[in-house]
Design a protein around this nucleic acid. Structure first.
Lengths: 359, 359
DNA sequence: TTGAAAGCGCTAACAG
DNA sequence: CTGTTAGCGCTTTCAA
């Protein structure tokens, strides 16, 4: 580590060819005490306007930026947050990550992003490793047990996304509503026997969808066959094509778009017309969904809004102790993978459906 | 901020109900001086094995974790890195982010991820804001000018991905090679008039592809029409369908998969058979590419490997001053969006091509 | 092998 | 409004 003599004090070239300019340099250059410089940045109203602008000018000129880590050491606020997701590459997450990061930055927070690879042990470890470096953590679709989450929340403020745990601040999407809408759409089209292509076992979302779909079908006197549980990936959707055909159902609601797309294409590959013979509905409205043919009818989950809401909740937690639970609306987006079923009420409805199709 | 009396010293409950256990607590509990605790974690070989295990035990029991920010203040190493991308939601980036994060964590580094939304001003600001908090920054497909990059590299170690700047450590993918392979594949199939559907103006990658495609077609005495520049999104690909048809070309190489997919489906929507009448090749091999029908023939870019390589380069930069430039191999993946052209050498080749098709 | 002391860059009382 | 002082949690000389 190279030492550089300068202005009578020694300073460390922290990284190859990189010199850090500190509050002391600014103080010296502008002829004030370091605390005045400090105030200029963290409590400007306590500083004489003239002094302030002079300090600001020299700071600007020297390229000074307050060291957040040093500041954090004394204030206890790092102005960082952690965002932990199961799989960054899963198309469901990037929009959420993007929205959360942008929103956080607008509020002057930086975001650590980490990927657990669906492993609860990694997840726990990550939360603890990040705890000291952040003001709070956003836990997306956690795989940890409720107990573990309860435990770590004592080490660091938490907001959970996509899971309900009593007493814990959470942001969830109203997938129950979405599932009901989807099922109703299929029933309206004249389908009387549906399949729910289920998601992974421990998923809160999966339970919600299943319950809503079950209740709605039952209320209409129609039939619902549940196929699963399944890993929520394209392959299992494709692999389910055979089983779906065997049920003789004419419409399928899938746990997520990835599975719906897998199914969609496996059906087409074996000569089944979608939506002519079988209608398919997904959930999430990931970017892929509008790209496949036929375009996928799906339930749009407001992932970006969820990211922003979670950031807001986390940052407010400090102010008051309020720990609400937010439920965001979901919406059915009708595209081209759903069509009339065997009991379709003929013309009138078809026209209406055609009119609401979103291109 | 609540104050809690404990063990004769006052400690701050930094966050609602959260107490931080410090090196001092461990020292007191295990009856040694704080510097011994410090050594136990940062220079274990300097500590008596017995003392060490005693300290470790109490630390474990108290749930002590060293505060990285405090450590950074004195060592100058934060053990954090920054990862700046143009758009997290662009399907090209998530695999890279995931790989970089995982790789960095394995080496005990945490990763700040930030999204510039394609804005060079935001990008510059972000680099400077992050500079003090990280040991280095990974700049993916930067939109800043070379001069700006040269300037900020003096504030923080940098590794650039997807751009070559002399004297700056960089990781790039050999898209020239990929483009050559793709064009040769099309020529072999009997196409004599190709289109290059170009990317954005300032892109280094775009220039490389264009040059390689141009040279290869010329050498074969075939024709290449360049359409562009274009924004690298699905919509512009779709919008180009008309122009592509007007050229009477029978094969298209697109700047990226998003554009290729847009084109593919716009062609099909207007009754043009792919690959029957027009062959389409993309670049990147994003996850979507295997999902569309026909599956997209494309050039696979090793984004995950690029992320890992960049992390390695960044972390090595500290050790020696080595600032290499790494070029990663790209590979042509033949799927179903390419087929025989008007000058196809009939049977023999078709059989061979059929055999190499990747399902 | 351990302790004492200084100090990283900064903020936060408290005087003046 | 500004300077003085103490100290956040930790590492790192220097002595013992």
């Amino acid at each position: 580590m190279a030492l550089t003599e300068r202005s009578g004090s020694h300073r460390i070239a922290i990284k190859e060819g990189t010199v850090a300019v500190t509050i002391r340099d600014v103080a010296r250059a502008s002829g004030v005490h370091i605390s005045t410089v400090s105030r200029t940045f963290s409590a400007p109203h306590l500083v004489n306007p003239e002094t302030r602008s002079r300090v600001l000018a020299t700071a600007e000129q020297l390229g000074y930026r307050p060291n957040r880590a040093a500041r954090a050491l004394i204030t206890g606020r790092t102005h960082n947050i952690g965002l932990i997701v199961a799989d960054i590459a899963n198309p469901f997450f990037p929009p959420l990550i993007k929205a959360a990061e942008t929103h956080a930055r607008r509020r002057d927070y930086h975001v650590f992003v980490a990927d657990t690879d669906e492993d609860p042990i990694v997840e726990l470890d990550l939360v603890q490793a990040l705890a000291k470096q952040v003001d709070g953590i956003l836990l997306c679709s956690p795989r940890m047990s409720d107990d573990q989450i309860e435990q770590v929340r004592r080490e660091v403020p938490l907001v959970v996304i996509n899971r309900m745990i009593t007493g814990l601040p959470a942001v969830v999407m109203d997938v129950g509503h979405g599932a009901r809408e989807a099922v109703r759409h299929l029933l309206d089209l004249g389908h009387r026997h549906l399949v729910y292509l289920a998601g992974p076992r421990g998923s809160w979302t999966n339970r919600e969808i299943r319950r809503a779909a079950g209740a709605t079908t039952r209320a209409a006197g129609a039939e619902l066959t549940v196929l699963g549980p399944n890993q929520p990936v394209e392959e299992t959707g494709a692999a389910a094509a055979e089983a779906v055909r065997r049920t003789c159902a004419t419409a399928v609601l899938a746990y997520n778009d990835l599975m719906a797309i897998g199914l969609l294409q496996a059906l087409q590959d074996r000569g089944v017309d979608v939506p002519g013979q079988v209608s398919v509905v997904g959930i999430d409205d990931i970017a892929y969904s509008g790209l496949v043919r036929p375009r996928l009818t799906t339930v749009a989950n407001p992932t970006a809004a969820a990211g922003r809401a979670a950031v807001d909740m986390l940052l407010q937690q400090g102010d008051d102790g309020a720990t609400g639970q937010v439920t965001l609306r979901t919406d059915l987006i009708i595209r081209n993978s759903t069509g009339p079923g065997p009991y379709a009420p003929a013309v009138a409805l078809n026209a209406e459906v055609a009119a609401t199709v979103k291109e």
